[in-house]
Structure formats: C-alpha cells, structure tokens
Simulated assay, not measured.
Amino acid sequence: MLAEVPGRKQAARLVEYAQDEDEFGGQYPWPSVSRSDADYNGTVGDYWRGGVWLPLAYMSTKALETYGYHDVAHENARRLLAQMSETYKTFEPHSIWECYSPSAARPGQRVDGENLTLVAQDFCGWSALGPISLFIENVLGFYNIDATARLVEWRKTGWGEQGIRNLRFGDVHTDIVADGDTVRVVSDKEYVLKVNGKKYKVKAGTQAFTLK
C-alpha cells in the first residue's frame, strides 16, 4: 500500500487486517508478524516474532493514509502512543524502548535460550517516530507539513481547543490553534494552511479564520 501497488479492493482487504485484533489491530497494534502466525510470540514479542517496532508502525500508518484511511491510521496511532506513554509511566526504568510488547504496556523482550532479555532502552532513534511524528501527523492530524511548498495540511477532528504551537518547518515558525470553528494562526512568514481540504492563506502576523 505504501508503494500504491494494490487496487482499491485489495487495499480495503488489507485494512481489515490492520483493524483485526487477531491480526495487526487491537489495543496494541502493529505487531511485526500477524497474531495468527505460527511464529508469533504474544507474550514478549521476541524481537521480530511479534514485537512492535516504530519504523514498521510508521510505514504502515502512512500506507493507510495513502489510500485515504485516515480514521484507521488515527486510531492505531493513538493506541500505540497510549501504549508507549503507559510503558513510560509504569515500567522501570522509565524510557523509550527499541521495540514494544504486542500484548501489554511494556518493552519487548528477546528470547535467548531459556533467558529473557529486555530490548535496548533510551532508544530515541526510530522509536521517537511515535511520540513525535505519529503524534503530530496522526493524533493531532497535521499529516502533511511541506517546507518546500510552504504548505501545512491539517485533518482537524472534534470541536475542542486543539492545534500545535511553535511549529517550525523550513524558515517558517508558526502557531495553529483552533477552538470550535475558529482557527487562530500566528506566523513569522507566509504559507498556505489547508484544513479539511479548504485552503487559507496565512500572512506574517496574527490572524483568525472561520472554517468553511
């Protein structure tokens, strides 16, 4: 799906797997192999036998977006970030981990003979894709931030106060905060903001837009 190889019917079938708790969905989405696979280790993940890896989760999320399945991308991203947050709060040492368990809010573990070993901690390489990229792009909904085109595309859902402050892309520094159907923007440069498909031209300074 990321390479846009499947047709629409094939993609829809793959999305069913992304939502199925017995495959790649559920409370702890994106195990590295399907839960129905004979080699799946649902207890600890055992690295690539079920462990949740952020690079795979991120690519799978972008694949869903490519075919317009933003709701599924949002929900799986939210659940994965909830798992990372709960792990950080409840598991000691408090850290960002190399990969995560496919069945609990805890780090993944490797099976070495009869021994279990925790995966690497303080792993803010690819694992930072979760709390940074997935949070901004899929939970908050700023799914396309293009410095070259000077464009921000926001899939805004809900009506409470929401948005992002201190966003930097290219030479632009901006705040974008909505409350109900009003979006207030502060920026030091011009750019185009698209909210749910509608375009708004942002100028340097402070301005407000009423969503159409």
Rank of each mutant, 00 (worst) to 15 (best):
A12R: 12
W154F: 06
Q109M: 03
T206C: 09
G197T: 10
R13Y: 04
S127E: 12
I132C: 13
R106M: 04
K189M: 10
Y69S: 05
C124H: 15
R79M: 02
F24G: 06
D46M: 07
V186Q: 09
I145H: 09
N166E: 05
A77G: 08
L211F: 13
G158L: 02
D146R: 09
V183S: 07
G125D: 14
K9L: 06
Y17R: 14
N41Y: 03
W97K: 00
A63F: 09
R78V: 13
K9C: 05
L140V: 06
E114M: 14
W126V: 08
Q109S: 01
M59S: 10
W126L: 13
T117G: 12
R165M: 02
I176L: 04
Y47K: 06
R106E: 03
G160T: 08
G68F: 10
D71L: 14
T43G: 00
A38H: 10
N166K: 15
R110Q: 10
G170Y: 11
T90S: 13
E16R: 06
N115P: 05
F24P: 03
G7L: 00
W159S: 15
A128C: 12
A178R: 03
A12E: 04
L2P: 02
V5W: 15
K189A: 09
P29L: 06
K199L: 11
V5T: 14
Q19S: 11
L151K: 08
L211S: 07
M1T: 13
P107N: 04
F135P: 07
A178C: 04
E92D: 06
Q27P: 03
M59F: 12
P107S: 03
G50K: 04
G141V: 00
E86Q: 12
